[in-house]
Each structure stands twice: as structure tokens, then as C-alpha cells.
């Protein structure tokens, strides 16, 4: 009950009988830790413990059946020197991230700009645009995509009507990855909602003042909207990029789990899955997981470092 009180330092005065200090500490902190208990157990047993274990496993040879065999940094060395599929998966993933995230955000922002300012029918449009995000990663949507871009799919039917004979997008290594980029951009709804919420925070009188000053719409966009929205853009950018690095289901379904054709949809997470659960190279897969953590950490840290050049915070 008194768990509410200890904003100040724990009271170190003797509280009568021996053990008073412990009793006091429990009285002040007990309730908090009881409520926290589910997360604490989960954190240690399902997050921190496993994370440390996988760090150890990344330095071992481990096939799940016999005990892990310590092999030093060999997994990491092999990755960069003797594993063309690793290199391929990095390349595929980076291309996917670099294309899908900016396109998705640009689209989300553009649509949010059009939707902004309490227009009629906004809830309707917002709902329609959000629906693909929600259906998102389900297998059904990947199935649909596979069929949209099949040799005899919807896209080619439409192209045929204007006299173009489209390729078999999914099974052509030159195009297969781009179908997945399109799928990602199609799901622009949730960043759009966040942009809408951000745009609503910009006071209308700023635009009124700017237009009284004779600022053109372009100038208003560049000088008011973008700077004031920059924290939201930054936030969306980081979140969407991390999500893009973790993308799995569509590539798995579209390629039938192979990452093909010719590794062209071999997402990093798909490669990790194959190593772990198709070839049971658990040590190597753990090393892959930690490399992913490092990539995401570097990316995030780098993004935060750039914020001072372009993200505008109210002070």
C-alpha cells in the first residue's frame, strides 16, 4: 500500500525492532514488485536469459541433438568469408528496406496531407486505407499477392488489356523482390494514421499567419508542415525500418519457404529460419540473430545521431 510513497530516498532510520529496515523496504516496494512480477519473470526467463544464451550459442556449433561445441568466432568469420547466401540475404534485405520504407512513408504522408483538415468522409477513407495494414502479415494476403503477380495473375491480365505482355513477376528473380516492396507500400495505413495524428497537432493559425504573410502552399509545406512533423516522421521511419528488417511471412509464402527464385527473396529472417529449423545449425542461426541486433542497433543509433540536423523538437 505504501508502495506509492518512496519518491524520496528510502528511509534509512531505524524503525524500532530489528528487521525494521527490511520490513520497511517490503512495505514500500512489495506491492510494486508483486504487480511487476509477471513481467520480471518473463523478462528474465523469456527475454534476458534466452538472449544471453543465444549470444553464447553464437560462438558454438549446435545441432539441438548434441551439446553445443564452442568454436570461438568461427560462425561470424564464416558469415563474411564463406557464405554467399548470407551476403545475398543482406543484399536483399537492404534493398527491401531502402525501397519499401521511404516509398511507404512518402505515400503515407501524401495521403495524410490530402486527408487532413477535417474533410468530409475522412473516417471512411481512413478505414479503407488502414485495412491492408491490419490484414498485413497474414498468410492469406501473401497468397493473394502471389496470385496477383503470377504469370496469369491480375496484374498481367490488366497489362494485357493495354497490350503489354507482363513477365511472371513472382518467378522472375529480377522482379520478385519488387512485388514484396509493392506489398509493403500497399500497407501504408498505419504510418498514415500516425501522420494524421501528428498533422492535427499543428495549430491551424500557423498556416493562417503564414498565408497572411504571403507564403505559398509549397513554402508552407516546407517551412511549417515538414519541420513540425519531423519528430513524427522520424518516429515512423525508425519503427517502419525495424519492422522491415524483421519481415518474414510474405517472402516465406511467396517463395514457398525457399527465398527463391535464385535467392531473390531471401530475406534475412527467412535465411535465419532456414539455418535454424531446416538445417538445424542453431549456433550459426544465433550468430545471425545477433548480427541482426547489431544492424538494427547501428541503424537506430545512427538515426538518432542525425536527428539534430533535421528533427525539430519544441523546447
Amino acid at each position: 500500500m505504501a508502495a506509492y510513497d518512496t519518491m524520496s530516498k528510502p528511509d534509512t532510520r531505524k524503525q524500532g525492532a530489528a528487521g525494521g529496515w527490511l520490513a520497511g523496504a517490503i512495505r514500500r516496494n512489495g506491492a510494486g514488485y508483486l504487480f511487476l512480477a509477471p513481467w520480471l519473470i518473463g523478462f528474465f526467463c523469456l527475454t534476458l536469459g534466452p538472449a544471453l544464451a543465444s549470444l553464447y550459442l553464437s560462438f558454438t556449433n549446435f545441432d539441438l541433438l548434441s551439446a553445443p561445441e564452442f568454436i570461438g568466432a568461427q560462425n561470424y568469420v564464416r558469415m563474411v568469408t564463406a557464405d554467399p547466401r548470407f551476403i545475398a540475404s543482406i543484399r536483399v534485405t537492404l534493398v527491401y528496406v531502402a525501397l519499401s520504407v521511404p516509398l511507404k512513408l512518402a505515400f503515407a504522408l501524401a495521403v495524410a496531407m490530402v486527408l487532413n483538415r477535417g474533410m468530409r468522409g475522412l473516417p471512411f477513407y481512413r478505414a479503407i486505407f488502414y485495412l491492408p495494414s491490419l490484414l498485413g502479415t497474414s498468410v492469406a494476403i501473401a497468397v493473394l499477392w502471389r496470385q496477383l503477380f503470377a504469370a496469369d495473375g491480375l496484374v498481367n491480365s490488366l497489362l494485357a488489356q493495354i497490350g503489354i505482355e507482363g513477365p511472371s513477376w513472382i518467378s522472375n528473380p529480377n522482379y520478385s523482390l519488387y512485388t514484396l516492396v509493392v506489398l509493403s507500400v500497399w500497407q501504408f495505413g498505419s504510418p498514415m494514421i500516425i501522420f494524421l495524428a501528428g498533422l492535427r497537432q499543428i495549430p491551424t493559425d500557423m498556416y493562417e499567419a503564414a498565408s497572411l504573410d504571403g507564403a505559398s502552399p509549397t513554402r508552407q509545406f516546407l517551412r511549417i508542415t515538414l519541420p513540425l512533423l519531423s519528430p513524427v516522421i522520424f518516429f515512423n521511419f525508425v519503427i517502419q525500418t525495424i519492422e522491415a528488417f524483421k519481415a518474414f511471412t510474405p517472402a516465406f509464402v511467396i517463395s514457398g519457404g525457399s527465398g527463391g527464385p535464385i535467392n531473390s527473396t531471401l530475406f534475412y529472417t527467412l535465411y535465419l529460419y532456414q539455418e535454424a529449423f531446416s538445417y538445424f545449425r542453431m549456433g550459426y542461426a544465433s550468430a545471425l540473430a545477433w548480427v541482426l541486433v547489431v544492424i538494427i542497433a547501428i541503424f537506430t543509433a545512427f538515426s538518432f545521431l542525425t536527428t539534430k540536423y533535421w528533427v525539430h523538437y519544441d523546447d
Binding site: 536469459g49 534466452p50 543465444s54 550459442l57 535454424a276 540473430a289 541486433v293 538494427i296
Partner: peptide, 10 residues
């Protein structure tokens, strides 16, 4: 921020 892949195998 932690990708679940890190805890996946253990």
C-alpha cells in the same frame, strides 16, 4: 526494439 530472433533459439 529487440528483434525476437535473438531469443528465438534458446
Amino acid at each position: 526494439m529487440l528483434p525476437y530472433h535473438v531469443t528465438l533459439i534458446p
